[in-house]
Amino acid sequence: MRYALLMHYREPADGELSDEVIAEAQRQFGIYGQALTRAGVLLSADVLQPSLATTSVTHHDGDLRIQDGPFAETKEILAGIFLVDVPDLDAAIGWAGKCPGAQWGVVEVRPVAMSVVDGQWSS
């Protein structure tokens, strides 16, 4: 079954993290990604740009509205996504618990309802 591991944490201000801290986080995520790959469960992974790069699009009352920045005002942002294919929720929770992002915030584990793979919808 497919699960999205959604990393949410407080976005650091510019210059708040030293180059050493960033390099260590990248190293930890590299190790985590390699472990997911070796286990054969990683489908994809993306680290997102800072929320300042966000554009939100809504469609209300026939009008398309485009807004700079995230739609929701929150303390924590969606920072990245790992998509895994594992046997069950317990396995997904196990991988989420190993995610370096869990050190800085929350890793939300959400089952995937439907997927498009090679142009075909599946559930």
Rank of each mutant, 00 (worst) to 15 (best):
A102R: 09
R38I: 09
Q28F: 08
L64Q: 04
E16W: 00
V86P: 04
Y9P: 00
P111L: 14
A79Q: 14
A102M: 10
A92E: 01
G30I: 07
D19P: 00
I93D: 02
T37C: 04
V106L: 14
G94K: 11
Y32P: 01
L64T: 15
S18W: 00
D14G: 02
L64A: 02
Y9R: 13
V41C: 13
Q67P: 01
L52N: 12
W104F: 15
D88L: 07
L78Y: 05
Q103Y: 11
A102G: 06
V106P: 00
G33W: 07
A25H: 09
R110M: 03
Y9F: 12
G94S: 14
L42C: 05
V21D: 01
T54P: 02
A39I: 14
A113D: 02
A79T: 12
D90S: 14
G80L: 07
A92C: 10
P70M: 03
D85E: 15
R38Y: 05
G15W: 02
Q103C: 08
G62W: 13
I93R: 12
L78C: 02
F71W: 14
G105C: 13
D118F: 11
S122D: 04
P111K: 13
P111D: 09
V112M: 02
P111G: 15
D90F: 03
S18E: 00
T58I: 10
V41F: 07
Q49S: 10
